[in-house]
Amino acid sequence: MTSARTARRAAALGLGALWWWAVLRLALEPRAGVLEGAVAAGGWGLSVLPVHCVPRRRAVGALEAGRWRRALRTASGASPSGRPGAEAGSGSEVGSGSPSGVDGP
Rank of each mutant, 00 (worst) to 15 (best):
L18W: 00
G14I: 04
L13E: 02
R56G: 08
R67P: 05
G45S: 05
G14H: 15
W20E: 08
G45K: 11
R58K: 08
A65Y: 05
G61R: 01
G66D: 11
A38Q: 05
A41T: 14
L24A: 06
L28Q: 10
V51H: 15
C53P: 09
A59E: 01
L46K: 13
T6C: 15
R25T: 15
R58Q: 14
T74V: 01
W44L: 15
E64I: 04
S3G: 09
A62D: 03
L24R: 12
W20F: 03
V54A: 14
A17S: 09
A17D: 07
V39Y: 05
G45V: 11
G16A: 14
L72D: 08
G45R: 14
L35S: 09
T6I: 09
E29Q: 12
L46Q: 07
R67A: 03
R25H: 11
L35V: 15
W21N: 10
A75G: 11
L18I: 08
A12Q: 07
R70P: 00
S76G: 11
L46V: 11
A71S: 09
A59K: 02
L13D: 02
A11W: 06
L35A: 11
A22Y: 00
V51R: 15
A27D: 04
H52A: 13
T6Y: 05
A17I: 07
A38L: 05
S47W: 15
L24S: 14
R9T: 13
L28V: 15
A59Y: 01
A7S: 05
A65Q: 12
A17V: 12
R56M: 11
G16M: 12
R8Q: 13
G61K: 01
G14K: 10
E64C: 06
V34N: 02
A7D: 09
G33H: 10
L63D: 13
L15H: 04
R69M: 10
P50E: 06
W20N: 02
G66L: 02
V48E: 13
G33V: 04
A38E: 04
G16N: 15
V23G: 00
W44T: 13
A32G: 03
A38P: 06
A22G: 01
E36D: 04
A40Y: 03
G33P: 03
R56D: 07
P30H: 09
L18Q: 01
W68L: 07
L13R: 03
L46D: 14
R31W: 11
T6D: 09
R67Q: 10
G61C: 09
V23R: 01
R73Q: 05
G14W: 03
R25A: 12
S76V: 10
L49H: 02
G66N: 15
V23T: 02
V48L: 12
A59L: 13
V39E: 03
A40E: 05
G66K: 04
L24Y: 11
R73P: 01
P30C: 08
A27M: 12
A62G: 14
C53Q: 13
R70Q: 06
G42Q: 00
R58I: 08
V54Y: 03
V39N: 13
A40F: 04
V51F: 10
R5T: 08
L13M: 15
A11H: 12
L35R: 07
V39T: 06
T6H: 08
G66A: 04
A65K: 14
A12H: 14
W21D: 08
R57P: 01
L13Y: 06
A38W: 05
